[in-house]
Every structure is written in structure tokens, then in C-alpha cells.
Design a protein around this nucleic acid. Structure first.
Lengths: 152, 152
DNA sequence: ATATTGTGGTTGCATTTGCAATTATAGGCC
DNA sequence: GGCCTATAATTGCAAATGCAACCACAATAT
């Protein structure tokens, strides 16, 4: 490996590499526990924290950072598995609301310990709380700025 | 959004979200410039920094953090595009070495300014050098530990 | 009211990915 | 040498993804 001169570029490179490596471990852990992939967890978690456990498709897509069509297919599968339910939006005839079911809630609760364990051993374990706070605030800035570019 | 109590878990959440958002922007930038996806850049860059611009398939897979079969397909496409060339490994009859071509080198050079611009505006711009260093070292630890888990 | 333009969501199709075989060779052991 | 197991890389097939249409309805203008 050649040294990247700029510390920010090195940070970027490690950021990308770490992400890829950790996701691999996490998906493997879910798979070994006969649980669905991380993307499902994300959707369940987002819905669980939304008002009444429901969200419009587009909002769900934005929060989960996936494309519209992708969230359609994702919820197709999850609906088939009984984890969410779709219904027409009462205030917008075009819209659809995606709602968490009790089964979905239960699955999220079941997935969390597996996920948490991976986060702890792969990630949290290697950070002191000062570092964690710094990473949070720095990435918070990055996310905000990236969000603003959405309009373009 | 509900507040995640543990600062490390919040850091994790933002880490994952930021990654997804930034990759979206970066892929879009490559696409708009009629350039191939980031995965190709990664392979080209890895080869360019390897001895003689060549690497065994398995090593390439490890460095690029992709599965074996995936790297096979990736190099299939890149070979078809004339960016890399495969040949039998002289010291291991099973092996294949993947070598960067002049065309591949040229494409990497052409992609870099586009990539760099995205890294700068989306990522580097929001970090001071102290933060960048901290992120580098923290993620360096995380990557090392994750690598050690590979053996299991 | 009617036309026009915009937005929400889904679908079709091509590309890409992941996983489980499969093939070919290496390396140790007898 | 012959046998057994392990490793390198590829392939087939199913699943997931991205993109460009597409349909239905909303919102605005006239």
C-alpha cells in the first residue's frame, strides 16, 4: 500500500474500507443466526421510530438511503414475510404508507442483540467515548451537507 | 429520529448513513462523467500500487474487500474493456495474475480528478486535520481487528 | 372544467451480486 | 508414485440492484 499523503484522503480510504469489512461481518452474523439482512433491520428500525410505526414510501426511502424502486422491492419482500403492511395514504391518493406489524416489531427486537454484538466487537470496542463523539459530530456535518446537495 | 443513548452507537449509525449517502453522490458523479463505477477505480488503484502493477486474484479480492467470485466477474468486465490482462501464474499452476494495462493506468488517471472532487466537497471539506487523523487512526484499529477475525 | 406539469409509487429489463458447486492444481503423507 | 485434503479461480443459478419507462393522482394555470 502506498502512503496517501493527505490525512483527509487517508481517512476517506479507511472509512470506505472499514465499512466494507464490517458490513461483511455483520451480514454473515445475521445469516448465521438465520436472520434477514441488515437492510431489513434498517427498515424495521426506521418504522419503529416513526409516528405510529408508519411512514410514506418516499420518506422511508430517504431515511434508509435507498432508491425509490429499491424500497418498493424491499417492502414487497418484507410484506410477504408479514413484517410490514402497506395501505393507501388517506390524504394523498397517490401515496402509500408502510406500517410496521407486530411481527415486524418482534423481528427487530430479535435481530438487535445480534447486530449489537457485532457493532460492539467490531466497532465500539475500538473507540473511546471522545473519539465516538468526534466521529458523530464530524459525520453529522457530512450528512447534513450531503443532504443539502439532494435538491440539486 | 430517536436519540441513540450510547455515543458509540450513534457514531456507528452516522458512519453507515454517511457512507451510503456519499457513495450515491460519487457513483452519480462518475456516471455523469461517463466513467465506470467506483469498484473499477478501486481495482485500478490497487493494481497500480502493487509490484509491477499485478496481483493474484485472491490478493486483489482481499485488498478490494470483495468476494472471490465477485472479483472474477469484475476483472472479466475490465479485461473486456482492455483495462487489465489476466495470465497464468508462473509459480502456481492454479493461480491467475491480474495485471494493469496502459489503458487501465490511463483510465485511473482520468477518473481520479472526478473522484477527488467528490471526496473533497463531500468529505474532506468538513474535517479539520486533527479530525482526519483521529478518524484515520481509529478506523485503522478497526480494520486491523476486523482483518484478524478473517481467520475464524 | 381542462389542460399541463409535477410527484408518488411501481414495474420491466439489464446488470450486478452472493452462494454453492465445480474444475484444476498444490502439498503433505504413506 | 498414489492418495487425500486444501486452496485458486471460475461458473451456474437465484436474488438483489439501478435505471428508465410507466400509471395514477395532485397541483397549478388558464
Amino acid at each position: 500500500m502506498v502512503a496517501t499523503p493527505d490525512p483527509r484522503q487517508r481517512a476517506w480510504a479507511r472509512f470506505v474500507t472499514a465499512q466494507a469489512m464490517l458490513l461483511e461481518h455483520i451480514e454473515a452474523a445475521f445469516s448465521e443466526a438465520d436472520l434477514p439482512p441488515l437492510a431489513w433491520y434498517d427498515v424495521l428500525w426506521i418504522l419503529e421510530n416513526a409516528e405510529h410505526g408508519r411512514l410514506r414510501m418516499a420518506d422511508l426511502a430517504r431515511k434508509a438511503v435507498v432508491s425509490r424502486s429499491n424500497v418498493t422491492r424491499l417492502t414487497d419482500r418484507m410484506e410477504k414475510a408479514g413484517l410490514v403492511a402497506r395501505s393507501d395514504c388517506p390524504i394523498d391518493g397517490r401515496g402509500t404508507v408502510c406500517e410496521l406489524t407486530a411481527k415486524g416489531r418482534a423481528l427487530r427486537a430479535k435481530m438487535w442483540p445480534v447486530y449489537r454484538k457485532q457493532i460492539d466487537t467490531l466497532f465500539s470496542k475500538h473507540l473511546d467515548s471522545r473519539e465516538a463523539d468526534l466521529i458523530s459530530t464530524a459525520f453529522g456535518r457530512i450528512i447534513d451537507s450531503s443532504n443539502q446537495r439532494k435538491s440539486s
